[in-house]
C-alpha cells in the first residue's frame, strides 16, 4: 500500500469529506510525527508502535574501497519499535 492508496481507503470510508481534506489530514499525521522527532521528542502510539530518536556517536569510519580512515560526525537517527498489539497481529492472522 502506498500513500495515495491509504488516502483513497480513508476517503472511501468518509464520503462526506473532500478528497483534498483527506490528503491534508493524512499529511498532517505524518508531518507531525517527523516534526516531533526533529524536536527530539518521542511519538507513542499505543498498539501501533513508538517512534524515537537515537543518537549515534561520532566515530572513525573507513572508506571501504581505499581502507582510509575518515571521521564520521555524531548523528541522530529515527527509530521505530512495533507495538505489542500490532506485533501480535502480524503473527496470528494467516
Amino acid at each position: 500500500m502506498i500513500k495515495s492508496e491509504l488516502i483513497q481507503r480513508i476517503a472511501d470510508e468518509n464520503p462526506h469529506l473532500y478528497q483534498r481534506d483527506v490528503e491534508r489530514i493524512v499529511g498532517t499525521v505524518f508531518d507531525q510525527i517527523i516534526e516531533a522527532m526533529a524536536e527530539g521528542n518521542r511519538v507513542e502510539l499505543r498498539g501501533f508502535g513508538a517512534f524515537s530518536v537515537k543518537k549515534r556517536d561520532a566515530r572513525i569510519g573507513r572508506n571501504p574501497r581505499t581502507g582510509e580512515a575518515v571521521p564520521v560526525e555524531q548523528k541522530f537517527v529515527p527509530f521505530f519499535k512495533t507495538g505489542k498489539l500490532l506485533r501480535d497481529r502480524l503473527n496470528d492472522e494467516d
Binding site: 499525521v29 524536536e39 527530539g40 521528542n41 518521542r42
Partner: peptide, 11 residues
C-alpha cells in the same frame, strides 16, 4: 532538548 511525548491526542 525539551523531552516530551506526542500521542494520538496531539495528532
Amino acid at each position: 532538548m525539551s523531552e516530551s511525548t506526542l500521542t494520538r491526542m496531539d495528532l
